[in-house]
């Protein structure tokens, strides 16, 4: 049966663990995987530009020895004016073995999956789902903390609009997390429905909300930073007042655990001071790198090649 990856829920926990395992295997010996996707074509359809995500997928496919066709933003595509997404996808799926798509409209990848002859991977639809970011976060945690279970995780910054944080929170909850510390200004608190969801579905996880990172940073095994956008604040004064509190710098890192890790989906705006880039606990660049390996594993799964080849 053909499978798509539209939202993190499309994968079971076991499937995620297997992807991580294979991603780590590729990471250790990328050469062994060169050529497993030879003769396969990836259609990389970016209806909205996102250089970082596009390059991550392109790099993953090229490292597997496959080919790429597609476009980097809707202006260069036939989809610019008039053509329905369904038509674009129907045609592109004749030209390729796998589709990776990013689209500004929420729900677009789900629509695409209904008309595609080949698997579709959602590389982000508006502020809705971004499952490969979640997979990237998971492989990073697994790589540095050895297991996904039993951690105390501090989520810092914009917890209201950042839906990739929402899906990471939901996913980590299913991996038996010990505690979530939610650090955000009042304006950007985790939405009520998610707090309720955690309370009802994972009552064993301790939840603590905090305003200041310095108050709680010493407890966290994982410090997950997010972008805080100025536009999210009601006024400039509030933003200036709060922005320092959400800036992770050397001083705050002194209070953090010795074995803690600092993650960030990148690009950062000014949530992380450059001075901590050299701190061994800062793993956000490694996180981007691991993102390529987990995408290689995912491409293998969707194409049923390499470790996923039918026996």
């Amino acid at each position: 049966m053909m499978r798509h990856l539209i939202e993190p829920k499309d994968l079971t926990n076991d499937e995620m663990l297997r992807l991580i395992e294979i991603g780590q295997r590729i990471y250790k010996d990328p050469q062994a995987y060169h050529g497993v996707a030879r003769g396969k074509i990836l259609a990389s359809l970016f209806f909205e530009p996102s250089t970082r995500t596009k390059f991550s997928f392109d790099s993953a496919m090229l490292r597997l020895g496959g080919e790429i066709i597609g476009f980097a933003d809707a202006n260069t595509s036939s989809a610019k004016k008039g053509e329905s997404l369904a038509d674009t996808i129907r045609v592109m799926s004749f030209y390729s073995d796998l589709i990776v798509m990013r689209h500004p409209k929420e729900g677009a990848p789900l629509l695409a999956s209904k008309y595609s002859e080949v698997p579709v991977i959602n590389a982000g639809d508006g502020g809705h789902n971004h499952p490969t970011q979640t997979l990237t976060d998971l492989i990073t945690i697994s790589q540095y903390k050895k297991t996904l279970e039993n951690h105390c995780i501090a989520f810092v910054g914009d917890l209201k609009y950042g839906r990739t944080v929402h899906s990471l929170i939901k996913t980590m909850a299913t991996f038996h997390s010990k505690k979530f510390i939610l650090v955000s200004p009042d304006e950007l608190r985790l939405p009520e429905f998610l707090l309720k969801y955690l309370e009802e579905n994972h009552p064993e996880i301790e939840i603590q909300e905090a305003h200041y990172l310095e108050d709680v940073i010493h407890e966290a095994d994982i410090i997950y930073m997010t972008r805080i956008q100025k536009e999210r604040f009601f006024n400039e004064a509030d933003y200036i007042k709060l922005k320092d509190s959400f800036l992770l710098d050397k001083e705050k890192m002194q209070r953090a655990r010795k074995d803690a890790i600092v993650m960030h989906p990148l690009p950062r705006v000014n949530e992380i001071a450059y001075e901590i880039d050299d701190d061994p606990r800062s793993v956000y660049f490694e996180q981007s790198k691991l993102g390529v390996y987990i995408r290689m594993a995912l491409i293998c799964k969707m194409l049923e090649v390499g470790d996923y080849a039918a026996r």
């Binding site: 997404l85 409209k105 929420e106 729900g107 209904k114």
Partner: peptide, 12 residues
């Protein structure tokens, strides 16, 4: 939701 695909694509 104004960002929903259902507003811009007749197939949705």
């Amino acid at each position: 939701n104004p960002r929903c695909i259902s507003h811009t694509d007749d197939y949705a």
